[in-house]
Design a protein around this nucleic acid. Structure first.
Length: 794
DNA sequence: CAGTGAGCGAGCTTCCGCTTGACTT
């Protein structure tokens, strides 16, 4: 039976033509365009690479790379080889960029294709016409472009596999360094330094609210003084000057303005907008986009091109005309400006503009909508605005004038569907419609305020804004932005988190009814949400690399080597010569650092311990950041203590570090067992009889009393009693408990859901054991599925 | 989901850029 079912595909005549592309989704689409004589298959990206666990470059022999087929590609290559043997012509249709050319070459090599057996073709858009045209213009593999890719690959391997082991020896095991990731970390470290070193300067901003009378109605009008006052005294003096003054409109100026839409999405701009508008992390965006791509809803999601195909523009035009009218159409070609862009694909856009909704879940739908709107808007008319500026004179001075401004949309254009967000969280919304006014009109003052405002440092990076910066510097590619961001977090060079701001006071002066009042107000400054912060290890690795390998850490290093790769691609330079010129001085530096440099711990001397007179250092050790009292050569061994989560080597003070040695401490006895107070990973705790009890936030672990500690323990016991539904004498480890989300079963350290149809109060031990064994086998199979790749790391 | 709370003897770790699937009788 089974054999019969398989037969049709076995006896199907071997197609005359085999087309190979990189992505299986693309293969499926293209197969539909070509006739029966074409079979379309995919290579799933690169089919050969340098070995995983060795340098794989023959340095002595002209940097000859030792390519191999990775295990997960063996079957792909075997299948393709079989199909290629039976085909008259193999069409290598990988992307038209450096990597794509290299993939074609590796395919030709590993499928043993002779020059008369294959043809190389390229196309930039997945349409029937584009592909038929490509087939009419075949060429051979561009060997120089392949050499350029090889140079890129070998350089990255040499840098990564020589610098990383150096870090293992000099800093900490299992660290990594590379042309891309190390510079990404540098960006974050330096931004953090700028933020930390930033001194906020305050100045006073004056604004006024006037009354505008029109047809018996009174409308408030907000106006601002363009200049700021440096001191409170100056601001106050100005307000005093305005007491009893008359305010008159001196000038009304209106001028037209326009806004143009942004270009369609690339990988990086999609990541930025999805982060700002939908709160997606960079990797979430890519996973969701991948699903939309695989189901044929959008074009390829890893691209650096702003370009739309002719047919896409025609679809957009039709859609805009249908929904908004011909006035809203303005077709535009966008050029790509970003450094090192290779433009092998189109911009990210809906496959069919007439499909307004797609995606199987909320995330997919939202992302699709974003892509659809952005694409449509990119082909729409400019928005036409009218901006009005009103200049308001003050009778008591000629020097200063208030300015009120308004903006009216005359024609919405693309704003009907889309406007781009910005990273500036406090961006003031544009002023709207102004009430009718005329020159020389007198404006009664309602209230005038002078508010103290502080200057702000450059913002810390989000994942998405880091990607934008990397793209600007030409570092990394659309396919690597998300993986790089997760690598630097996995290595704990960088942590993404939210931090509370600090309360600060500011002054507010108010002039109202000819009286000036002064108030102190509070605001929270410097709070951060989901931003990237460097860790101690990130800082230490960064300064180590900056000290010894400034060339690679230079923001222009990639751009510099890319220029050389371009020369290789154009046949003006030999690839191995480019590598040779880079490698030997670099390698020399690695050897020298290995020999001459001490172990690098980012050690900082904080001062002397008043009790012992020994040196106190902050540094990183085997388990992270720590404080060390004393030097190893002294007769008394050094003492160690870990830093708290929020402390860093760079900022901790001597006093703070000595505090760390005061814990854990004994705090008396209870039930004949010792009470120990300490601070763990999750904050201050009391340890008693092998159990841990969290200390309430308001209690200071250094001063908490025995009585208070006992109280905390009793309270915890009481709440535990309350949440216990069932216990079993024969299995003390198994309990039925009441949690935040309803009843559950706790067995040792694991928890299990109770099926809805069972009553938790009457569960028998047998039923519970069954739930546990069902639960564990399910969890196990899920785990092996998900972590097959991450397992190797352990 | 629900609780959590280490300690510095071995061997391994690592790059960037393409791309997603997962043994059979």
């Amino acid at each position: 039976m089974i054999i019969l079912l398989l037969l049709p595909s076995k006896i199907k005549a071997m197609a005359k033509n085999l087309v190979i592309v990189e992505s299986p989704a693309k293969a499926k689409t293209i197969e539909g365009f070509l006739g029966k004589e074409f079979t379309v298959k995919s290579s799933f990206g690169h089919v050969r690479d340098l070995p995983k666990n060795a340098i794989g470059v023959n340095i002595e022999k002209g940097f000859d790379p030792e390519y191999e087929i990775p295990v997960d590609k063996k079957s792909v290559v075997a299948d393709l080889r079989k199909l290629a043997k039976g085909a008259e012509t193999v069409w290598l249709a990988t992307d038209e960029d450096r990597e794509g050319e290299a993939i074609s070459w590796h395919l030709a090599e590993s499928l043993q294709l002779t020059p008369d057996h294959y043809k190389r073709i390229v196309f930039h858009e997945i349409t029937k016409n584009a592909i038929l045209n490509a087939i009419k213009q075949p060429r051979k593999i561009d060997q120089n472009l392949v050499f350029a890719q090889q140079a890129r690959r070998v350089l990255d391997r040499l840098v990564g596999f020589e610098l990383s082991p150096l870090l293992w020896k000099k800093v900490k095991p299992a660290l990594s360094a590379g042309r891309v990731q190390s510079v990404a970390v540098r960006l974050i470290v330096e931004r953090e330094k700028e933020v930390q070193g930033f001194k906020a300067i305050s100045s006073y901003r004056v604004s006024a609210i006037f009354s505008v009378e029109h047809d018996g109605d009174i409308t408030p009008l907000k106006a601002e003084l363009p200049q700021r006052f440096k001191t409170k005294e100056a601001a106050k003096a100005f307000l005093e000057l305005c007491v009893g003054a008359k305010f008159t409109i001196e000038d009304i100026e209106t001028k037209p303005a326009k806004k143009s839409p942004s270009p369609p999405f690339t990988t990086s701009t999609l990541q930025q907008e999805a982060s700002r508008k939908l709160g997606f992390s960079v990797s979430r965006t890519m996973v969701v986009a991948q699903k939309l791509y695989e189901s044929g809803k959008i074009t390829y999601m890893r691209t650096d091109s702003h370009n739309l195909s002719g047919s896409a523009m025609a679809m957009a035009k039709e859609e805009i005309e249908k929904n908004y009218g011909a006035d809203y159409v303005k077709l535009r070609k966008y050029t790509t400006k970003s450094k090192g862009a290779q433009e092998a694909h189109e911009a990210i856009r809906p496959t069919y503009m007439s499909v307004h909704q797609a995606g199987t879940d909320a995330a997919g739908q939202k992302l699709y909508e974003l892509i659809w709107k952005r694409t449509l808007a990119s082909q729409m008319s400019d928005a036409l605005l009218e901006k009005t500026n009103i200049s308001i004179g003050i009778s008591t001075t000629k020097k200063e004038k208030f300015i009120a401004s308004g903006e009216v949309v005359k024609f919405e254009g693309f704003l009907k569907v889309y406007f781009e967000s910005t990273d500036d969280e406090e961006e003031e919304s544009a002023a709207g419609l102004l009430p009718p006014m005329k020159k020389d009109q007198l404006l009664p003052l309602q209230e005038m305020t002078a508010t103290e405002r502080y200057s702000k440092p450059l913002p810390r990076y989000t994942e998405a804004s880091l990607v934008r910066k990397m793209e600007e510097l030409g570092i990394g590619r659309p396919s690597t932005y998300a993986p790089t961001i997760s690598t630097i977090q996995k290595r704990t060079y960088v942590i993404k988190e939210s931090r509370d701001g600090m309360k600060r006071t500011y002054s507010l002066l108010t002039l109202s009814n000819d009286k000036i009042t002064e108030k102190e107000k509070h605001e929270v400054a410097g709070a951060e949400k989901n931003k990237l912060f460097p860790t101690d290890i990130g800082q230490v690795v960064n300064s180590f690399l900056m000290e010894h390998f400034s060339e690679i850490m230079d923001y222009n290093f990639t751009a510099k080597v890319e220029r050389e790769f371009d020369e290789v691609a154009e046949g003006q330079k030999q690839w191995s010569l480019v590598i040779k010129n880079f490698y030997w001085p670099f390698h020399e530096k690695v050897e020298q650092t290995l020999k001459e440099s001490e172990k690098y711990s980012g050690q900082r001397l904080l001062g002397k311990d008043p009790a012992s007179g020994r040196n106190v250092y902050a540094k990183i050790g085997r388990f992270g950041s720590m404080i060390q009292i004393g030097d190893p050569e002294e007769t008394d061994k050094p003492r160690f203590a870990s830093l708290r989560k929020e402390q860093t080597i760079d900022t901790i003070t001597l006093d703070e570090s000595l505090e760390l040695f005061k814990l854990p401490r004994k705090a008396g006895e209870f039930e004949n067992k010792e009470l120990v107070i300490g601070v763990g990973r999750f904050g201050p705790y009391i340890r008693h009889d092998g159990k841990f009890y969290s200390l309430p936030k308001e209690e200071d672990p250094l001063t908490v009393t025995t009585e208070k500690s006992i109280e905390v323990i009793e309270e915890k016991r009481e709440s535990d009693r309350k949440k216990t539904i069932q216990t079993f004498d024969e299995e003390p480890d198994i309990r039925v408990l009441k949690g935040k989300w309803g009843p559950y079963i706790a067995s040792g350290k694991k928890n299990y859901k109770i099926p809805k149809d069972l009553n938790p109060e009457q569960l028998t031990l047998e039923e519970i054991k069954k739930i546990i064994s069902d639960g564990t086998s399910e969890a196990k199979s899920r785990k092996t599925k998900k972590t097959s790749s991450s397992k190797k790391r352990k």
